[in-house]
Computed example of a mutant assay.
Amino acid sequence: MFRYFLKRLALAIITFLIILFVVYVIQSSFGKHPFTEAQLAQVSERLSPNSETKIDPLEFYGFTKDPVSRFFIWFKDFFFLGNPGVIYSDTSEYSQNIPKLFFEPLKWTFAVSIPAFLLSVILGITLGVISAYKRGKWQDTSIATFVTIFVALPSFVIAPFIILITSAMGLPFEFKDPRDVNGWLTAISLISPILVFTLSSLAGYTIFVRNQVVTVLTSNQVLIAKAKGLSKWNIFRKHVLRNASVILVGSLLFSYLSLLSGSIVLERFFRIPGSSTIIVSYTERGEINVIMFSLVFFTGLSMLTSIFADMSYAWMDPRIRIANSDNSKNYFNLFKKSRLRNKNYKLLLKNANNQEMEVEENEQL
């Protein structure tokens, strides 16, 4: 298990570095620099207030260097010196503190995504199990119709209908900043986006759980359990829930990451000052340090989640053995064996040719 963890970690680190390099080089090559003409003059004055020779901000901040050199400079500063860089076009308190700029609005993203995730998972699992146990009946048909509607409708189409309903109930649909109103009104203003997030992801969980439960219910182990006279509750607890949850847990982890990182449209729709708003805003301005900080956070989180999901399969089901030395493939050893086979084959072929030549010489004599 530990050996497999080290392999997965090494692969994740390599993938992580490749993603960082590719994104940085592409952004540096094709993205614009964050300074307007007016800002260039202002920054130049700020960098050289008492000097007759004005400092060029583009040269000072390294924008004139090639993208690969800039990447390695950024990489060294970020990972070895702990310096995520500055916001070039910003003179506020966040210009020297990118982590604060990123993590402060992230709390509002979590305030919407976590309740929506929990609600959609609970409802999705409940509806999926009911649909699987009542398959072919009116309950299954009703749930399938409900799910099909929300699969077909994207979130930005669902949002206006939710807004109409919540507005009729007297609830605000736009985010209310707690600095301007009391905390209770802020919490109420999050109800509409939470409902939209929940309905957008509920259908996927319902379909997935239903398919997993139906697969387990039609398996031989459940048929044997029924033949032994186990009750429906014991069959569900010992067989259905255990087997379905092995795949479900890993999928839920990835689905939350998708919900967390894919909230850009809804956050802008409801005017929630979340992290996605910051990312979009500073990407449009060409602030590469903000772009790379958000990339490091979300990519690193995705890599760790991927490793944890793989490991969770073996933790939840002892029958699963990951990277068994008898069954796992060592590609270096396979390559060595392949070369050895080719070498032996050529040697045998050479010996056979020599024997044929000797036979021909003997016949001629």
Rank of each mutant, 00 (worst) to 15 (best):
residue 234 N to Q: 12
residue 113 S to F: 04
residue 139 Q to A: 02
residue 165 I to P: 05
residue 135 R to C: 03
residue 8 R to A: 13
residue 106 L to V: 10
residue 137 K to F: 08
residue 335 F to E: 14
residue 224 I to F: 13
residue 314 A to Y: 07
residue 296 V to C: 11
residue 281 S to L: 06
residue 298 F to N: 12
residue 31 G to P: 05
residue 18 I to C: 11
residue 109 T to R: 02
residue 336 K to V: 15
residue 272 I to F: 06
residue 136 G to R: 03
residue 243 N to R: 01
residue 261 S to H: 00
residue 5 F to D: 09
residue 26 I to L: 15
residue 259 L to V: 12
residue 19 I to T: 14
residue 172 P to E: 03
residue 95 S to L: 05
residue 238 K to V: 05
residue 146 F to P: 03
residue 31 G to N: 02
residue 210 R to W: 07
residue 288 I to T: 03
residue 176 K to Y: 02
residue 320 I to V: 15
residue 325 S to W: 06
residue 113 S to K: 01
residue 167 S to P: 01
residue 21 F to K: 00
residue 343 K to V: 07
residue 282 Y to C: 02
residue 91 T to C: 02
residue 170 G to P: 02
residue 263 S to K: 09
residue 146 F to N: 04
residue 251 S to C: 03
residue 282 Y to V: 00
residue 74 W to N: 03
residue 15 T to M: 08
residue 359 V to H: 08
residue 33 H to M: 14
residue 204 G to F: 12
residue 47 L to G: 12
residue 352 A to S: 14
residue 349 L to E: 15
residue 153 L to W: 10
residue 300 G to N: 07
residue 305 T to M: 10
residue 47 L to M: 11
residue 155 S to H: 09
residue 45 E to G: 06
residue 65 K to E: 12
residue 354 N to G: 07
residue 152 A to I: 10
residue 48 S to G: 07
residue 65 K to T: 05
residue 50 N to Y: 10
residue 255 S to M: 11
residue 349 L to D: 15
residue 274 G to Q: 01
residue 226 K to L: 13
residue 341 R to L: 15
residue 164 L to K: 13
residue 46 R to A: 13
residue 220 N to E: 15
residue 360 E to F: 08
residue 88 Y to Q: 00
residue 25 V to Y: 04
residue 183 G to Q: 12
residue 126 T to R: 03
residue 196 V to A: 09
residue 29 S to D: 11
residue 124 G to T: 05
residue 132 A to E: 01
residue 124 G to I: 07
residue 116 A to K: 01
residue 302 S to G: 10
residue 43 V to G: 04
residue 293 F to H: 00
residue 222 V to A: 11
residue 127 L to T: 02
residue 36 T to H: 10
residue 359 V to P: 00
residue 124 G to S: 08
residue 112 V to R: 05
residue 148 T to V: 15
residue 125 I to Q: 00
residue 357 M to D: 11
residue 103 F to P: 07
residue 307 I to A: 07
residue 242 R to A: 07
residue 106 L to Q: 11
residue 336 K to M: 14
residue 107 K to S: 13
residue 70 R to C: 02
residue 133 Y to G: 02
residue 136 G to H: 06
residue 174 E to R: 09
residue 197 F to C: 09
residue 144 A to F: 09
residue 234 N to W: 04
residue 106 L to M: 15
residue 166 T to G: 01
residue 170 G to D: 04
residue 263 S to T: 10
residue 328 S to C: 04
residue 83 N to S: 12
residue 93 E to K: 14
residue 98 I to A: 09
residue 33 H to Q: 15
residue 14 I to T: 14
residue 109 T to D: 02
residue 135 R to I: 09
residue 249 V to L: 13
residue 319 R to T: 10
residue 88 Y to F: 15
residue 23 V to M: 05
residue 100 K to V: 00
residue 297 F to C: 05
residue 330 N to E: 08
residue 232 K to G: 06
residue 187 A to I: 14
residue 65 K to L: 05
residue 134 K to N: 09
residue 66 D to Y: 06
residue 273 P to K: 07
residue 77 D to I: 02
residue 177 D to A: 01
residue 188 I to L: 13
residue 318 P to S: 04
residue 301 L to K: 04
residue 258 S to T: 08
residue 228 K to W: 06
residue 161 F to T: 13
residue 217 L to R: 05
residue 297 F to W: 10
residue 228 K to T: 04
residue 105 P to M: 11
residue 112 V to A: 11
